[in-house]
Amino acid sequence: MIEIISSTALCTVQDIGRLTSRRYGVGTAGAMDQVSLAAANLMLGNAENSACIEIPMFPFKVRFIQDCDFSVAGVEGTMTLDNGVLPTGWAYQAKAGQLLSIQRPKAGCRAYFALGGGIDVPVVLGSRSTQLRGEFGGLEGRMLQTGDVLNAVTALNDRRLDFGITSALSALALERENQIELRVIPAAEYDAYRAETQALFWRTAWKITPQSNRYGYRLQGADIRPEQPLETLSHGIVPGVIQIPPGGQPIIQLRDAQPTGGYPKFGTVIEADLWRLGQAAIGKQLVFKEVSLEQARLAAQQNQSYLDDIKQMLALQEIFV
């Protein structure tokens, strides 16, 4: 059991999201960095999809009300447990009364805080993720506040916890000179743009504007306009879709996006790279690279190998303890 001490807004309870209620108008929600969500859970022996607290503002402070297994993944930085200092990407056992403070990270921008067995909030339509528009899921369908108390499914799991993992940011790095590379599969309206416009899109370094959040990232860099104005009827969309509104500035729809949309779609960031956006702060630069479905499958396998390595490390620990 933990109590939220810091007044940082925008923290929510998230798992991988609500994947089968789009036909009722319900967006998926879910963690922005699902690789780190899984990593934080694996460290504690949780199911990969257990609910964590997603933290985009720092410092983040919680007090443990009972002895509790916990881990933090996603960002690279430090955290303090009372007077002790730990790196992030670490699993540990806190004692009742201890105060954990996750400091502003050196790399990445969203931390995932896991508890033994996962954060214990009700499953709603198949997920524990917070649906802000629908005001359900997570803790009472809202962002966390100072004084909120959350339970772990199983606070203590009788395993030795005092170890770390390599972050996804380091293990899966593609970053080149402060630009974050994202792999994209062209979407339905791609061919409605002239070859020069398509080339402009691929070579532009796009800046993540301050109007970017869990709903979507609005980008700045070039004007991308179709040959003819495009009209499309509302249809289902997925997180990662790159829409181009009439103004010509792309928006990447993300986890809190609506389940439907109507703006022209230039392409879609592959699912295996969405975690990179989850760790990409406002002001960072993005570059897009066209890939085939086969290349996208390889990217997904690389993410899986990162998680498999963590599992293997844990299995070895069990043997040698």
């Binding site: 062209p186 979407a187 339905a188 997925v238 879709v241 779609k265 879609t268 996208a296 499958r297």
Partner: peptide
């Protein structure tokens, strides 16, 4: 294709 997780028929 809508990325690696969906197909759209219009």
């Amino acid at each position: 294709l809508l990325g690696t997780s969906a197909v759209l028929l219009q």
